[in-house]
């Protein structure tokens, strides 16, 4: 094994050199949030927790607390994940298994939407939300986010359903179970890895969404962390890079945690039902 390993060293060294700038920037990002540095220097000259004060008090006097923003983001990401997964689960089953009218058209549309730069629809979406009275509400942003995520979710789940043998359902039906019972007790457990992966994936996608809340909910009330972060850097009253870095880390931590905890489940989404 040892000589085998050694042959990788040049590649490892090259990759390390290439990614060094990124790694160094991340390290500095972390260091900057807990230190003070004299202007023009790169060596920190003191330790401080003042950049993390946003955890206990609002950054601007009349602004929202970070926890309210995190709560908003959490609601946004969770709602997106739950609705996307729920709709994908049922829609994908129908597309995979039921001989319904317009199925081919629907599947074709799904692929087109999957590849379509949906953001170009933003003006139309804006008008519709305005018309429905959902503009500048979290509900409106969630609905749009869900709609944008669904083609991907349905397509992924359809792949998982397609890999479940027909015979399992046929056996279930002859065993006396209704189609719904067959789906719930026999098919759903087979696509459970896909379900978990999609849930996490759409949560992360919701958590990191920036454009939709920015455009469709620009007012103060339903802000999420992504747009708030942009606001910090744009606001010349509090232009503070160390604060920006600290909030960034706060914003990225849940994502990192989820990746670390669920990385096995997330890999499933690309393995799309290779097990029968």
């Amino acid at each position: 094994m040892q000589p085998h390993h050694r042959s990788y060293w040049p590649i490892v060294a090259a990759l390390t050199a290439l990614s060094a700038p990124l790694v160094i920037m991340y390290v500095y990002q972390l260091i900057d949030t807990v230190t003070t540095t004299a202007p023009g220097s790169i060596i920190p000259n003191g330790i401080t927790l003042q950049h993390w004060q946003f955890l206990s008090q609002p950054i601007t006097r009349d602004g929202p607390t970070i926890w309210a923003l995190a709560g908003n983001t959490l609601i946004f990401a969770c709602s997106t994940a739950v609705v996307v997964t729920g709709v994908s689960l049922t829609a994908a089953y129908a597309l995979s298994r039921l001989a319904m009218p317009g199925r081919g058209l629907f599947l074709g549309g799904l692929i087109v939407l999957h590849a379509f730069p949906t953001l170009t629809l933003i003006v139309a979406v804006f008008l519709i939300l305005q018309y429905m009275g959902l503009y500048d509400t979290l509900t409106g942003v969630i609905l749009v986010k869900v709609a944008f995520e669904l083609p991907f979710g349905i397509w992924i789940m359809k792949g998982f359903y397609d890999s479940v043998p027909w015979e399992i359902e046929m056996a279930g039906v002859t065993d006396g179970a209704s189609r719904f019972t067959v789906w719930r007790l026999l098919v759903l457990p087979q696509v459970q890895p896909g379900l978990a992966a999609l849930l996490i994936f759409s949560f992360l996608s919701g958590w990191s969404e920036f454009i939709l809340p920015l455009v469709l909910a620009p007012a103060n009330a339903p802000q999420v962390l992504a747009t708030y972060l942009a606001a910090i850097i744009a606001d010349d009253r509090v232009a503070d890079f160390s604060l920006f870095k600290a909030v960034s880390i706060f914003y990225a931590l849940p994502v990192l945690a989820i990746y670390v905890i669920f990385q096995k489940k997330l890999m499933n989404i690309y393995g799309g039902g290779s097990k029968g």
Binding site: P165, E167, I168, M170, A171, G172, V173, T174, D175, G176, A177, S178, L186, P189, Q190
Partner: peptide
């Protein structure tokens, strides 16, 4: 309907329910 017919069927690939034990498979009907 198939549910109301009372037939037993054995498929070429057996179509066992992979997430259930043998006893649960047999007891499913």
């Amino acid at each position: 309907s198939a549910q109301a017919r009372n037939v037993g069927i054995v498929f070429q690939n057996y179509a066992l329910y992979p997430h259930m034990s043998v006893a649960q498979n047999i007891g499913f009907p």
